[in-house]
Design a protein around this nucleic acid. Sequence first.
DNA 1: TTTTGCTTGTTAATTAATTCACAGCTATAA
DNA 2: TTATAGCTGTGAATTAATTAACAAGCAAAA
Lengths: 207, 207
Amino acid sequence: MKNLPDKTVERLCQYRRSLNNQLATGKTHIFSHEIANLLHITSVQVRRDIMLIGHSGTLRKGYDIKEMVKLIGKIIDTKEGQRIAVIGMGNIGKAFIHYLYEKRSKLKVVASFDVNPDKIDKTYADVYCYHFGRLKEIIQKEDIKIGIITTPPMVAPEVCENLVTAGIKGILNFTPKPLSVPDDVYLEEYDMITSLEKVAFFVKHNE
Amino acid sequence: MKNLPDKTVERLCQYRRSLNNQLATGKTHIFSHEIANLLHITSVQVRRDIMLIGHSGTLRKGYDIKEMVKLIGKIIDTKEGQRIAVIGMGNIGKAFIHYLYEKRSKLKVVASFDVNPDKIDKTYADVYCYHFGRLKEIIQKEDIKIGIITTPPMVAPEVCENLVTAGIKGILNFTPKPLSVPDDVYLEEYDMITSLEKVAFFVKHNE
DNA sequence: TTTTGCTTGTTAATTAATTCACAGCTATAA
DNA sequence: TTATAGCTGTGAATTAATTAACAAGCAAAA
Ligand SMILES: NC(=O)c1ccc[n+]([C@@H]2O[C@H](COP(=O)([O-])OP(=O)(O)OC[C@H]3O[C@@H](n4cnc5c(N)ncnc54)[C@H](O)[C@@H]3O)[C@@H](O)[C@H]2O)c1
Ligand SMILES: NC(=O)c1ccc[n+]([C@@H]2O[C@H](COP(=O)([O-])OP(=O)(O)OC[C@H]3O[C@@H](n4cnc5c(N)ncnc54)[C@H](O)[C@@H]3O)[C@@H](O)[C@H]2O)c1
């Protein structure tokens, strides 16, 4: 299960969310083409992904939604849940903490960091904000493995380096500054402005 | 130039940002492998993308940074700049407006919408917030072609439909709810939680 | 029971994206 | 002037991702 393609992992996360929505409506089974319609992809793609994770549906009944959610959880979540830190308690940092707090997923933000005295030593959605200087200490004490960078772009490289030194194994970078990490750290760059520019490009060229 | 691959467009946006950073340091020319290092891709990829947009570098001197920025601008931006609306003035909506305001890019948010009386008729970073009921009227009056949805997920489909009816041609969706649009509307789904779950997956499987 | 129609699971084919490999040019050093 | 090394630009090859095509199975209708 280690070598699922990146793209498949991404879709599995989306399947799970959609499946949870479906569960809430009382459905118990779902066909591949229904999942496909929800996500605007093809049903073959869905079946292939499901094949890759070694799941089977029932012929003419489709897939058991609860089972699939459980299985995807087994693939993506860890048993104990993963512990996360947010660095930079600005707009996006706060938005994220509140969002995850409400969702009560397996992903738990357990610490946040900032340099602004107005933010430090306060609590946001049950998450305590420490001074950035205590990053390493807290990350190791709290056994945090994932960091979300939502600082101003300029300091992102420094923050990143500190995270790596502290033993973080996965980083989600919201700043537009591309970062560098060693091979054993997974880095995902998430650039909102590029997304918007992409939309702008396609709007321009469809005129 | 219409048929650039999606991925290339995405990278062009990133090249431009990195190139602008380089300009700020006083550099005038840059090699393909330097750009590649900045973005953690290969130099062939960079050269191929540049080839696709019909640009040429100078041998042993690299690419003229200013020229490339200008050319990418020509491809991605429109002359007059594109006019954007944000729907849902919560955390993310506000963050976005402030960000674009500071950047002074060609992408201009010219209106925002909400249903909460506390938000309506106020101005955020020079952007006026209208009641959602006036969506169509304002979008047409202001000639807005791009919409950013940052409402709660539940209302996203309704918001989307309204945007399409009002004549929007590109939508950037920040809610985790997958949307449907006609063929002539470009839709980009931007799902932060999926990104985080992906990081979590790879951290789990690298242990 | 037999047929029909629908849906899964999978191999094969196709298409898209990336990388290899190298020819060609040019500034610099010998 | 004549190597030499460094970089660009690109066709060909490779790899990754998606789609087509269809066998196999089952439920419901006839
Ligand atoms: N906050 C995060 O980190 C995060 C992460 C992932 C996804 N999201 C998603 O992004 C979206 C926005 O997040 P947020 O934190 O900014 O939410 P938020 O609750 O702060 O803001 C939502 C805003 O939308 C407004 N609104 C509600 N109904 C509306 C309607 N019909 N028309 C116009 N406006 C309406 C609300 O009044 C509010 O101001 C949500 O869908 C959320 O699920 C957020
Ligand atoms: N707001 C957007 O819509 C948007 C869009 C695209 C990208 N981004 C990027 O996302 C990032 C966050 O955006 P935002 O709007 O939340 O910014 P923000 O300015 O609201 O928040 C940044 C926070 O980081 C803190 N900080 C500064 N230096 C720090 C350090 N060394 N260690 C820890 N914390 C530090 C600041 O005190 C502040 O609280 C920025 O890099 C921004 O460029 C934002």
